[in-house]
Design a protein around this nucleic acid. Structure first.
Ligand SMILES: NC(=O)c1ccc[n+]([C@@H]2O[C@H](COP(=O)([O-])OP(=O)(O)OC[C@H]3O[C@@H](n4cnc5c(N)ncnc54)[C@H](O)[C@@H]3O)[C@@H](O)[C@H]2O)c1
Ligand SMILES: NC(=O)c1ccc[n+]([C@@H]2O[C@H](COP(=O)([O-])OP(=O)(O)OC[C@H]3O[C@@H](n4cnc5c(N)ncnc54)[C@H](O)[C@@H]3O)[C@@H](O)[C@H]2O)c1
Lengths: 226, 226
DNA sequence: TCCATTTCGTACATTTTATCACAATTCAAG
DNA sequence: CTTGAATTGTGATAAAATGTACGAAATGGA
């Protein structure tokens, strides 16, 4: 640990720095923070105590200035001449991203992808706990697809979302069923959806959807394969 | 089918349009094309023959002007007053993206994710055929993880990449092994990598890497959950 | 203590991306 | 044939994102 403490003491320059309102911080900046956090956690695991915007940029393939500017939207986390305390910056990013506690997550669709997700330890390890999974196939209901995780029917899942205040859901059903599932989730109070179905969903503005479609990535890359 | 043919006949305005060199088309534009293509294919499946930038934009939640401008980098594919012929635009985007034929793909890591990928029909259906899978665990080698797909050892996979000229690979191993695997793949001649391991890889500029990490998406969304 | 070196945070410049808005077409209805 | 509504492709403009460069610390060694 370095001798002086993080965060740095206030000084003339920082005293009057205006804090931007949350909603005017560009989404593209928010989108990079989880990458920074992942890298910092990796450093923590390796026992690294200090890093710099230059080192981070090197690892991530982006400029050091961008990292500094991104972070500067939220405060001053580094120390001139030294860099950033890895643990401290981790904690700060976790607070900013709202991941300084565990989030419960539900999964819809207990097919091959849903089962893989339910069994993946990486979610819980990084703060996202799969608390329930459902499927419309009666043949799957009651099956224990992962340790301690039994497939429920969709009505039950909907009720649990409400009762337990779950905000995050994963859609792992075929594309043709995805919109119907999304409607159900929104109705139940879900606010964030990670959609694996290769389709675009229509949801109210208060709900955020992100998509994972590996084929999209393949097709993006093949453009450059000549 | 509409009475007149796509593409539209050339006219004064188009005659002198300069075609931008491939390498100066913004990557962010390329990144949207697969989304357009996916939507158009969906329309094809629904029997829709004509669409418009407005309709596409509505579905995708982006502006019609952006869609028109994106497409305009590559030519003129629509007809004023009418819109776009779905089939024709599909074919054009497939050519542009270089997905007017099937690409062979190899997978490294035959764990739970690798197995799910190997079994997923959605890749082949959209032009990406998993032709081989490998694992370093001797206990997994020889197992048939999907119909017609037997786990090989990594040296054999490397040889096949070379022999068969495979250009695209998926990394589905734990993060700590990912860089080693990437080095092997690059050495074997792979040019595009889809990495599921939650880490950032170092590869030469001639190789493109894209990442899928669901936790990154969760963390992006939790920022907005207050 | 002083100096050389490192690194941050940020004002300003540049580049990139998105939007606007309109002439040119297309087509169908009357 | 004429009119009106719809839609494209694109130059001009606006907005957003990124990069540059530097003053202000912080550190460690002479
Ligand atoms: N398997 C993969 O590796 C993979 C990879 C990328 C994307 N995907 C996508 O993820 C989705 C699921 O893929 P999969 O391979 O698990 O498919 P799958 O057919 O194995 O499983 C889908 C499951 O969803 C259930 N389901 C269907 N409609 C439902 C509804 N309305 N409510 C609740 N459950 C419903 C089905 O009963 C089935 O169990 C698909 O959209 C697929 O394109 C899968
Ligand atoms: N399972 C999921 O749903 C999921 C979701 C997102 C991301 N991931 C990520 O995908 C990766 C794989 O996850 P998983 O659940 O399949 O893990 P897993 O442990 O089930 O499988 C990993 C496999 O990789 C093999 N392996 C390890 N080192 C190797 C090497 N050098 N060469 C070849 N094979 C090697 C192991 O023998 C094992 O079979 C991990 O990085 C994980 O974080 C998994």
């Amino acid at each position: 640990m370095s001798s002086t403490s993080y965060p740095p003491a206030r000084n003339n320059r920082t005293r009057n720095r205006k804090k931007p309102r949350r909603d005017e911080i560009p989404d593209i900046v928010i989108g990079r923070l989880p990458i920074y956090l992942r890298t910092l956690r990796q450093m923590t695991a390796e026992g690294k105590e200090i890093t710099s915007s230059q080192e981070l940029g090197q690892i991530l393939g982006i400029s050091s200035a961008q990292i500094r500017k991104d972070l500067s939207h939220f405060g001053e986390f580094g120390k001139q001449g030294t860099g950033y305390n890895v643990t401290y910056l981790c904690r700060q990013l976790e607070k900013i991203l709202n991941v300084d506690h565990t989030w419960p997550v539900v999964v819809v669709g207990a097919g091959s992808l849903g089962t893989a997700i339910a069994n993946y330890q990486g979610f819980a390890k990084r703060g996202f706990q799969i608390v329930a999974i459902c499927d419309e196939d009666p043949g799957k209901i009651g099956k224990e697809v992962a340790p301690g995780l039994v497939v429920e029917d969709c009505a039950r899942l909907s009720a649990r979302i409400r009762e337990e205040g779950v905000k995050i859901a994963v859609i792992a059903v075929p594309a043709h069923a995805a919109q119907r599932v999304a409607d159900m989730l929104v109705e139940a109070g879900i606010r964030a959806i990670l959609c694996y179905a290769p389709t675009t969903l229509k949801v109210p503005p208060s709900v955020r959807v992100e998509y994972i479609d590996p084929v999209i990535h393949f097709q993006h890359m093949t453009y450059y394969l000549r």
